[in-house]
């Protein structure tokens, strides 16, 4: 089958690649573009570790066709930091010990960023809903929720 040329922005730089019609974005990012920020977890949209932003909206890269990203802006965890300065969410994740093994972290950060971009002052319930599609097996979620609330400047009550 013929490869299809695809162009999109990846973390603010223009990228061009070739994809099969059925290639998903996660495969293209990891195998074609050496962008290893999004992780491969379940490959069926259940775990959230491949979460990326497409035109600002959180999407699961494993369920997104690469050719559907033509002309769009794909953002991954690799583009969050501003040079040497980490994104406030990344700092908050560190300060709140929101990563243990770290495998869910790239997806959590993207889901959290999408939330804060559209709702700078989320409630705890907003945060819970925003990360409900992201599985974490280590932290018990609480440190992640606390980190996102801290990044939002909200003072989350401790485990309330």
């Amino acid at each position: 089958m013929a490869k299809i040329p695809v162009q999109f922005r990846l973390n603010n730089s223009d990228r061009a690649t070739f994809a099969e019609a059925a290639d998903n974005l996660l495969t293209t990012l990891r195998r074609g573009l050496n962008e290893f920020g999004p992780k491969y977890g379940c490959g069926q949209g259940a775990c959230g570790v491949c979460t990326v932003l497409i035109d600002g909206e959180p999407q699961l890269a494993c369920l997104t066709l690469t050719v559907a990203c033509e002309g769009r802006h794909v953002e991954t965890v690799s583009g969050m930091a501003d040079g040497p300065n980490m994104h406030p969410l990344q700092n908050a994740f560190m300060d709140n010990f929101a990563a243990q093994c770290g495998f869910c972290t790239p997806g959590m950060l993207m889901a959290a960023r999408a939330l804060l971009d559209r709702n700078p002052n989320p409630t705890r319930e907003d945060v819970v809903e925003a990360i409900a599609g992201n599985i974490c097996r280590c932290t018990g979620y609480e440190p992640i929720i606390a980190a996102i609330l801290a990044a939002a400047g909200a003072r989350g009550e401790k485990r309330a």
């Binding site: 977890g41 259940a46 819970v128 979620y141 929720i145």
Partner: peptide
């Protein structure tokens, strides 16, 4: 898989 294996979520 994760779709069928029940675990408590953040809520």
């Amino acid at each position: 898989d994760f779709n069928e294996y029940l675990m408590p979520g953040p809520g």
